[in-house]
Design a protein around this nucleic acid. Sequence first.
DNA 1: TTGTTTGCATTCCATACTGGAATACTTAAA
DNA 2: TTTAAGTATTCCAGTATGGAATGCAAACAA
Lengths: 298, 298
Amino acid sequence: MDSNSLKAFLTIVDLGSFSEAAETLHLTQPAISKRLASLENQLGTSLIDRSHRKIRLTTAGARLLPHARKILDEVHNARLALSPDSLKVEGKLQIIASHHIGLHHLPKWLNRFNREYPMVALDLQFMESDAAYRQMHKRSAELAFVTLSDTMESGFRVFSQWPDPMVFAAAPHHPLAKQDRPALKELAEYPALLPDTTTATYRVVSRLFLEANLVLKPQMPTNYLETIKMMTGVGLGWSVLPVTMMDDTLAPLKVQHPVSRVLGGIGLAGRELSNAAKALLDIVRQEERNTRSESGGR
Amino acid sequence: MDSNSLKAFLTIVDLGSFSEAAETLHLTQPAISKRLASLENQLGTSLIDRSHRKIRLTTAGARLLPHARKILDEVHNARLALSPDSLKVEGKLQIIASHHIGLHHLPKWLNRFNREYPMVALDLQFMESDAAYRQMHKRSAELAFVTLSDTMESGFRVFSQWPDPMVFAAAPHHPLAKQDRPALKELAEYPALLPDTTTATYRVVSRLFLEANLVLKPQMPTNYLETIKMMTGVGLGWSVLPVTMMDDTLAPLKVQHPVSRVLGGIGLAGRELSNAAKALLDIVRQEERNTRSESGGR
DNA sequence: TTGTTTGCATTCCATACTGGAATACTTAAA
DNA sequence: TTTAAGTATTCCAGTATGGAATGCAAACAA
C-alpha cells in the first residue's frame, strides 16, 4: 500500500470527482482511475461506487477513510521529522481565518510575520468557522483561526485561544437605546441582526431566547459582522457584536445576560506543525497576550 | 512512500541484517538492498550506515523509526478494518508467554480456545518478560502474557491483569522453616534462590533487603520458577514463589513483608487486535475471573 | 601481510507497473 | 434520442522491481 494510492483515494473523496482529483494531483484522469483501481485491487474490495453520476463511498471505502487520513498524517509527520533544515522557517503555509479575525487580528500578526519570516509563502483563505472545520478535516490548511465551537469535533487541537466578549448593541436613536436595562422580552419585539444559524454567536443568542421562552426575530442579512454593524448603526435592529467593534455609531444595550465567544487557532491532532506554523503561532500568542494585558490594564 | 519499503527498513533494523531481513520477507538480499535504497532515495537521506560490519541507524534512520512503526501499525489497522469476515475467528495468532504462565495458566486457556476456535493457527513462543517486551515492540507477536512491569514502557496496552501473590518459602527441614516469624535479617544469612536481576520478582525482593539495609545472597541458578522450586525443596536456600506453586515439598515462611506481582496480557497501543486475539482475551478474562472467585470464595 | 569469510552493492535481464493520449463506455439530463 | 459529463479501457513508452550472478569492502585469522 503506497501513500500515492491513498492520497488519490482521499483526493477523489474530498473533491467528489476523479477528474478534479487528477487535476489537483497533476495527473491525467486515467492515471487517477488506475491508482484507485490498483488500491482496490490490493485491498480486494471496491472503495468507491462509480455506478451513478455522483460518486459515493462504499462501506469498505467509508471504513478505510479515517485510516487513510491517519496514515497520510503519519507519513507527513515522518517526512517532517527528517527534514534537515529544522531551524529554517520557509516554504508554504496554508491558513484559514474567519472574516472577523481576518479584519481585526490578522493584520498585526501578518505584519510581524512577514517582516520576521519573509521566506514563507502565505496561502490565506477566508471562510466561516464551520466551513473552516470541514476544510481542516480535508487537510486543506495547516491552521485555522476561527470562533471555537462548543461542539468541536475531536481530532482538532487548540493551539491558542482568547475570549472575545460581546455586547448587545443598537443605533443610538433606536428605541432600545433609550431604555436603561432592556430585558430580553423587549429585545424580542425588534428585529435581530444576527449571523446565520450555523454560527456560534447565533447559537448563544438563540439559546438565551429559548430559555426565556421568547421568539427571536432574526433578519439574516449576512455573516459579515462589519455589515451587521453597519446595518445596526443605521437602525435596522439590534445585534450582538464584539466589544472591540463598538464605536459611536452604536449604543451598547445594558442587557443582563453576558454573551461571549472564544476565538482561537486550531490545528489537526496527529499532524505535526511546520516551522512556519509554529512561528506564526508564537507571534499570535505574543500579540494576543499583549492585547489582553493592555486592555485589562486600563 | 510505500509500506513495503518501510517494512524492509524495519525488518533490517530489527534483525540487524539485510540478508536476514530478505529471508524473513521472502526476498533475495539484493531486493532488500534496493528497497531500502529506494526509500533512502525518496527521503533524500541515508537511513542505515553499512560502512561497518555491524549495521547502525543514522540520525535520520533513528528519527524515522517510530514513525515507520506507527505508519505500518495504521496500515495494519486499515487492513483489519476492511476484512469482510469480521465474525470469523481464524488465521494465525502469534502470542508470547512467560514460562510460568505457560505452565500454570495457558493450558486451561488453550484447551478451551482450541476447542472453540479450531481454525486459528496458534504460534506460541516462550520467553522472559523483558525479552517479551522487546519482541512485542518489534511486532513479533500480537499478545504477550507476562509479569507486568512497574516500569512498563508506554506504547503497551494492558488487556487483562490479575494478582499473583507470592510467599517466602524453604524446605520443611531448612533451619528457617523452624523459626516462627523469621525476619529479613535472618533470611539474609542463608542463600536466596531467585530469578535473575532483570525479573520483577528479583527487583521486589532486592528492594525489601535494600530498604532494610541488608545484603541479599542471591544464587542465580535459573529463571524457571519450577527449577527454583525444586532447588528450594531440596534445601539449597530460601526463595519467593507464587502461593499457587506451594505444596508439601515446601514450607511457607511467615515473613512480615507481603510480596506480590501482577500477571497480565498486553498488546500494543495503536494496533488493533485480530478476532482471534480478542477471542483469546475473552477466554483469559473469563477463566481468570473464575479462578479468583473460586479461591477467593474459600 | 595475506587469504578467507561474511555481508552488502552492483550489474544484467526479464517482467510488471505506471502514466499519458486517444477512445470507448455509462449515466443522467435535455 | 441526443447530448454532456465523467469514468473505464486500450495501447504504448518509460520506469521500477526482483532474481541470479558477480563485485567489493570490512573484519578476522593465520
